[in-house]
């Protein structure tokens, strides 16, 4: 297991060494969203009865930051290693494909959790948020980060340059997180867009995570966790199969 631990530690050290960019910068961006949206909308919008809009917004923003950063962590680390060739240092040793998967996903979970925790704690300064069901929130947080960590591996294996990698991030991951109900409840949408939102797995992550805070959600947390777990398993299986086959790594 030394190989797995080393790779995991290397991945942690990598993002820690550039923490201005990997932790502080997403933290600040997310808090700007919070500041602006809560200022503009707080007086006008109440999504759940008795829940102030800023309080409603915070869990969504925490989850959004976690998902985007978990994805960024594995994807940017791997694409950089691929592009500058230092991936050979991980391909020459006797590391198994599942160790590779575990180390990268675990590091993504840690990065997502650190950023999410930062956003959550800073959010307390804006509004008091309490956790009605902490274990539900934790389960959705961990599954969400792990799912996006795996998605980051798949994307960076597929991408052949930074441009393609950025395209996945900007045209798939960011829209899916923004359109998942971070800023609103999907019940406020027209029926068609409600149906579209239900096809977005990120919706279940945000909705389930929010249930952990308020005990209220658009769909039942049981259904959400089953869908999220299924997505996580499917992405993990795909990642493991790609890694085992040496897809775009071992010619």
């Amino acid at each position: 297991m030394t190989g797995l631990w080393t790779l995991f530690y290397k991945e942690l050290l990598r993002f820690w060494k550039v923490s201005l960019q990997t932790i502080l910068s997403p933290l600040v961006t997310t808090l700007l969203y919070l500041l602006i949206f809560s200022h503009v909308l707080e007086a006008h919008v109440q999504v759940y009865p008795g829940v102030n809009y800023t309080v409603f917004l915070i869990p969504g923003l925490v989850m959004m930051a976690m998902l985007q950063n978990a994805f960024s962590n594995s994807s940017s680390s791997l694409i950089q290693s691929k592009m500058n060739g230092s991936i050979v240092f991980m391909l020459l040793p006797p590391l198994a494909y599942w160790e590779f998967y575990t180390a990268y996903v675990a590091a993504s979970v840690v990065r997502g959790a650190v950023v999410g925790l930062g956003v959550g704690l800073a959010g307390l300064w804006f509004a008091p948020v309490s956790l009605a069901h902490p274990l539900w929130a934790l389960a959705f947080a961990l599954l969400g980060c792990a799912m996006l960590g795996a998605a980051g591996i798949i994307s960076s294996l597929w991408a052949e340059n930074y441009d393609q990698m950025a395209a996945v991030q900007n045209f798939i991951v960011v829209p899916l997180t923004f359109l998942s109900g971070v800023f609103y409840s999907i019940h406020s949408l027209p029926p068609f867009w409600q149906a579209v939102s239900r096809a977005n797995p990120f919706f279940y992550l945000i909705d389930g995570f929010r249930y952990g805070f308020f005990g209220v959600s658009d769909v039942s947390p049981q259904l959400a966790i089953v869908i999220v777990a299924a997505c996580f398993l499917a992405l993990s299986l795909a990642t493991l199969l790609l890694l085992e086959s040496g897809y775009k790594l071992r010619k």
Partner: peptide
């Protein structure tokens, strides 16, 4: 090739770890 994030000693420690040492 090299990894821009790390020092010589860090690289050598990681490489040892990958080989289980």
């Amino acid at each position: 090739v090299y990894d821009a994030f790390f020092t010589v000693r860090e690289m050598l420690r990681f490489q040892s770890g990958y080989f289980g040492i």
